[in-house]
């Protein structure tokens, strides 16, 4: 009846999951849904089953409060919070890395002085979280949470160590590609974004149903940082560049003659 090969864990093998990921991507291309945004109903990522809304999002014209976002400032964030390698008695294990980039809106305008939050696993692929039962070592010198404000040109910058991949139980032999979780605010409520940044060249990217919930390859490419030798520093840290474009109510590209003073 079911030709799915049996795995030692009893979970679906990667080959079957990958075939389903490809089929959903193909099917979604035909629906007219915006493939650049993740599919809320995405069966290959099993936890979506009971958590995705079944009704379409309902269009609403933003009201006053939704045309603004919360303000954060110097009182909110200590500049040292942008360095995830601090906080322990010694240096954390792993590849010291700088991740930096620019946050803009869809018209290319910088998002200035706004909050960016990050969290990640340590170099061994373990989170400082009671729910993480992956038997990789915790690092006493690494917590993996940071914050900063973007500068006047929209740039953020974190110093950290490269996170490791980690296993999860979505399917048999499931491994999340190395990633850093990002949380961002724009200048209006609807620009709120929580996402994940990935590293280039990772062979796990093509196998990951969370990344694949974005069913457009160009959308997925926007989640992968670029190695940047100009960010890499002599005898200190490797460097990656990752720019972020926030959508929102005013995130549609310009019409001619509109927004001249932007």
């Amino acid at each position: 009846m079911d030709s799915t090969p049996v795995t030692a864990s009893g979970l679906e093998p990667q080959s079957a999951l990958s075939a389903r990921m490809a089929a959903v991507e193909e099917a979604r291309r035909a629906t007219g849904a915006d493939p650049r945004q993740p599919a809320l109903d995405y069966p290959p990522y099993r936890s979506t089953a009971l958590r995705h809304p079944t009704k379409d999002l309902h269009h609403a014209d933003p009201e006053a409060v939704e045309l603004f976002a919360p303000c954060f400032g110097e009182r909110d964030v200590d500049p040292l919070e942008a360095d995830l390698t601090l906080g322990g008695a010694g240096e954390p294990l792993g590849e010291r890395t700088v991740v930096t980039g620019r946050v803009t809106d869809a018209r290319g305008r910088p998002v200035r002085r706004q909050l960016v939050e990050v969290w990640q696993a340590n170099a061994g692929g373990r989170y400082v979280h009671s729910g993480d039962r992956h038997p990789a070592p915790l690092d006493p010198n690494f917590t993996g949470a940071g914050r900063c404000l973007t500068d006047d040109d929209g740039y953020y910058r974190f110093q950290t160590v490269k996170p490791g991949p980690y296993p999860w139980r979505n399917h048999h032999n499931a491994w999340r590609p190395a990633h850093i979780h990002f949380s961002l605010f724009g200048t209006e409520f609807s620009q709120r974004l929580v996402t994940q940044m990935y590293f280039p060249g990772d062979q796990l990217l093509a196998l990951d149903p969370i990344l694949a919930s974005v069913t457009d390859p160009r959308g997925r490419a926007m989640l992968v940082a670029a190695y940047d030798h100009g960010v890499t520093t002599h005898e200190w840290a490797t460097g990656y560049r990752w720019d972020i474009v926030l959508g929102g109510a005013h995130g549609t590209p310009l019409e001619d003659g509109e927004g001249d003073r932007a």
């Binding site: 945004q37 969290w119 729910g131 949380s183 929580v194 994940q196 990344l211 989640l223």
Partner: peptide
């Protein structure tokens, strides 16, 4: 830019 950065799940951690 014609594209905006897609969201991803906040995850369990």
């Amino acid at each position: 830019p014609t594209r905006t950065t897609p969201g991803q799940t906040v995850g369990p951690f």
